[in-house]
Amino acid sequence: MLERAPKVALAFTLISLSISSAQADVVPLELYVYCVEGHRTHVEFLSEHDILAMPQYSVATSTPWKSKSEYNGIRLADVVSKTCPKGSSVTITAYDDYEIKDIDVSGILRDQPILAYSMDGQRLLLRNFGPLFLVYDRDGGEGSRIKTSQYSAKEIRQIKSLSIR
């Protein structure tokens, strides 16, 4: 009986670790938007409900990391106009604190990238670019321009917040 105790403890530990790592992969679909106007900053919180209530878009395209897939989400331009309409540049921050800085709003309006929360009908998790992934239509009409490294560098994944100035 005493010989089984270490094996049971080891099994329990392994099960606990697998449950914790699975839960760590799931983060809520939400977005914090910091609108910086002069010396004032106000914070908008978009819950899952808020995000799903916005106009929804689909784009079938490739990314630097994946062949063609169908992405569903909301337009980044819609988030900017809803939360900080006077903004001229956007900084996007990921859960690992990686940032894409100073994306020009005029380019966002022209290219209409989406903040995707699903890929091929599956909700995005941390391990597969989620909860939000900035996706440009690389295979559409302006695809050849958008396939450049300038745009690939902007396709940030695991997005947690935006700062709009």
Rank of each mutant, 00 (worst) to 15 (best):
L14Y: 04
R123K: 07
D97H: 06
D120Q: 15
V135S: 15
Q112E: 11
Y98H: 08
E44Y: 10
K101T: 07
T93M: 04
Q158V: 05
E37F: 09
R110M: 09
I15D: 04
L134Y: 05
S58G: 04
T61R: 00
V27I: 08
L109F: 13
P28R: 15
V90E: 12
Y98W: 11
D104P: 01
A22M: 10
P6Q: 13
A11Q: 02
P6Y: 11
R157C: 08
S18M: 12
Y95W: 14
K68R: 08
T83A: 15
I74W: 00
I146P: 06
Q23N: 08
I103N: 10
E44K: 11
Y34P: 04
N72A: 09
S16C: 04
A53W: 14
S106P: 01
Q56M: 05
M54C: 01
H42P: 00
E70I: 06
L46F: 11
E155H: 00
T63R: 02
L76P: 10
Y32C: 01
S144C: 03
Y32H: 05
G107W: 11
L31G: 08
T63H: 15
N72Y: 08
K66M: 05
T61P: 06
T91N: 08
S67F: 00
E30A: 06
I103L: 11
Y151L: 09
A22Q: 09
K7V: 09
P28M: 13
I164M: 03
D104F: 14
A116T: 07
D50A: 09
M119T: 00
H42Y: 07
Q122D: 02
S163F: 03
P55Q: 07
G143F: 06
G121F: 02
N72W: 11
G143W: 05
R123N: 07
L31R: 02
A116L: 11
I114F: 00
I108R: 08
T148W: 12
E3T: 12
G87W: 10
S149D: 06
G143V: 07
T83Q: 08
I146H: 10
Q150V: 11
S118D: 05
P113T: 13
L126Q: 14
I156A: 14
K82S: 06
Q23E: 15
D139N: 03
A11F: 10
K7E: 09
S81I: 01
D102H: 15
I108A: 03
S58L: 03
V135P: 12
Q158F: 08
I146K: 15
E44T: 13
Q150P: 03
Y32T: 08
S149G: 01
A11P: 02
R127G: 13
L29I: 14
Y136H: 09
R138T: 05
S69K: 15
K154R: 14
T41P: 03
A24C: 03
T41E: 14
M1S: 12
C84G: 10
S118G: 01
A9T: 06
E48N: 06
L126D: 15
S89Y: 08
V27G: 08
L29M: 08
L134G: 14
P113H: 02
S21E: 12
L134D: 09
P55G: 03
T61L: 03
Y57Q: 00
C84K: 01
L115I: 02
V79H: 04
K86N: 07
E30K: 04
